[in-house]
């Protein structure tokens, strides 16, 4: 008996298709994460291409971001400086639709991205060109399917992530209306980028504290939890006993009292 995970595994196999895995095999993890490298978009990019990308990014930045972050990304009253945040931060914030922010609420929400993948890459290249920072993660690095260890990832997740994101990655409350968002449906590369850049309330998880291999394990566990079918019936949101209590008072006692009313009613 292998509870559903065989099925889950095959599901993921077709999503992160074979070609990606071949590329993955060619690239070693350590070099890609070297902090000194300000290159974005993978190692196949060459100088001229890079310059145009930066130029394009600069234009998008001037139009879409500079009103808050300043014309040279030096920051403003309402938004932080982006010099040195690196391509990973841009890829995460723009790629998950958090930036540009729709309104000045407590915290930027995940939503449909405003910029497409190319525009995001251009923005990332521009910001990375300002000062070195963590590079964006490409799919080739995300070998969690092959290199990750689900159980170890769960252990790491419970020690480092569950206190905010809840035991099943459903998210949770922080102070003053901030919240840790749900991790369900988040792209693996965005999870990875969040860990290395520490967006918003989230702290940074350095590569020496949680190694790149361990990060892949965490992603593997999150993806396993995400696609884990309901082993015991409707999941009730996987938020613990609160919804269970709610259900027992409404559905449980509700049905029983309904039946009791029928039972005590005089037949006609």
């Amino acid at each position: 008996m292998n509870f559903g995970f065989k099925k889950v595994a095959s599901y993921r196999r077709h999503r992160f298709a074979a070609p990606a895995l071949i590329v993955v095999a060619l690239i070693s993890l350590g070099t890609t994460f070297s902090m000194a490298s300000a290159l974005t978009g993978g190692p196949h990019m060459v100088g001229a291409e890079q310059t145009t990308l930066v130029q394009e990014g600069k234009e998008i930045f001037a139009r879409g971001c500079s009103s808050c972050h300043g014309i040279n990304a030096e920051g403003g009253n309402i938004a932080p400086a982006l010099v040195g945040v690196g391509a990973a931060a841009v890829d995460f914030q723009v790629g998950t639709g958090r930036m540009p922010m729709a309104d000045m609420s407590q915290q930027a929400m995940r939503k449909r991205p405003v910029y497409n993948a190319e525009q995001t890459a251009a923005l990332a290249a521009y910001v990375a060109s300002l000062a070195p920072g963590p590079a964006a993660v490409n799919d080739a690095q995300l070998t969690f399917e092959r290199d990750g260890n689900t159980a170890q990832g769960g252990e790491l997740f419970r020690t480092n992530c569950a206190m905010c994101h809840n035991f099943a990655g459903q998210g949770g409350a922080l102070s003053q209306g901030k919240y840790a968002p749900t991790l369900m449906g988040v792209e693996p590369k965005h999870i990875y980028e969040a860990m290395i850049t520490g967006p918003q309330s989230m702290p940074v998880f350095s590569d020496k504290v949680i190694t790149p291999a361990e990060k892949l394990s965490i992603i593997k566990w999150i993806k396993a939890a995400e696609s884990e079918p309901n082993l015991g019936g409707a999941s009730l949101g996987r938020v613990g006993p609160v919804t269970e209590g709610l259900l027992v008072w409404t559905l449980g006692l509700g049905i029983l009292i309904g039946i009791a009313v029928w039972l005590a009613m005089k037949a006609r």
Binding site: Q152, E155, L156, T159, N160, G198, P203, V204, F205, S206, K208, V209, I210, T211, E214
Partner: peptide, 21 residues
């Protein structure tokens, strides 16, 4: 040392904003 992993932590291992259990 890190939990889990039991690896010692070098002063340069943590960037500003980082945490470690």
């Amino acid at each position: 040392v890190t939990d889990p992993g039991n690896r010692p932590i070098h002063v340069n291992d943590l960037e500003v904003g980082a945490v470690a259990q």
